[in-house]
Design a protein around this nucleic acid. Sequence first.
DNA 1: CATTACCTGCAA
DNA 2: TTGCAGGTAATG
Length: 284
Amino acid sequence: MPELPEVETAARTLAPHVTGRTIVGVERLDWARMVETHSVPLFRQLIAGRRMVRAHRRAKWVLLTLDAGWILAIHLRMSGNLTVHGPDAVARPHVHLIMTLDNGQRIFFDDERKFGRVRLLDAAGFAALDAAHGPEPLDEQFTPHTLARILSGRRTKIKPLLLDQRRIAGMGNIYASEALWLAQLHPLLPAALIDATGSTALHAAIQAVLQQAIAYEGSSLRNYRTSSGGRGQNQEHFLAYDRAGTPCQRCGTAIERIVVAQRSTFFCPLCQQLSGPTAHGKEL
DNA sequence: CATTACCTGCAA
DNA sequence: TTGCAGGTAATG
């Protein structure tokens, strides 16, 4: 499920509930593979008694900064949700991690498909995680020039490149299609063939698509909920994703679905051409 | 580069 | 029953 906007929403809505609170213990942890860095007993022991200093996001990781130099990094993968509940809330069986706080509130990590992961990282571990990811697309340092350098010389198709977390952090299957639609770039266009006009348009499109989605608290298709339990609203504003057969909002042509790098990809065959006057591409 | 694996649930 | 789902890592 979650891409950058959903993870950002999760971190933001979690922050006021966790900042300054202490984790008194782990009430449930029934899926051992979830914890990638430690055995379950050691993990339970290490986070018990830790005070949480901050909740934020890097790439698609929710980061809970703890005292004693630890960072609890949580990846929601396809179906994960982080929610906050009171002492009496009943956790459904898909909740595989429950952390109890010193005020009686509990954090549920609900994860139907069990792909979600948590890591308890020290400073070096976090530095490695950070270094494994490309720039944050909403940072000031991410400029059209940054993007142009990422694209230059890469023979890979633009859509899979946008999904490569080592190149750009946080984009996923929904927002890659949305950004390419907005920038009028064909998903199969080789990255190196995108000219300055195209990379400038793509830069603006990536930021616009992500900022809009954050403003709507993410896209809720199946599983995703905000940390307070609500649905995001951005799915009401898709212009390409999941719109195969419906008219393009620019030109009226039916949106098409193709498979690129094993992922569903949606685009307008008229507005997003591999070459031609609207292609923003170098001559092929 | 493509395929498979990891998991579960839902719709066609 | 089959195919598909917002992600990623591990294989040929």
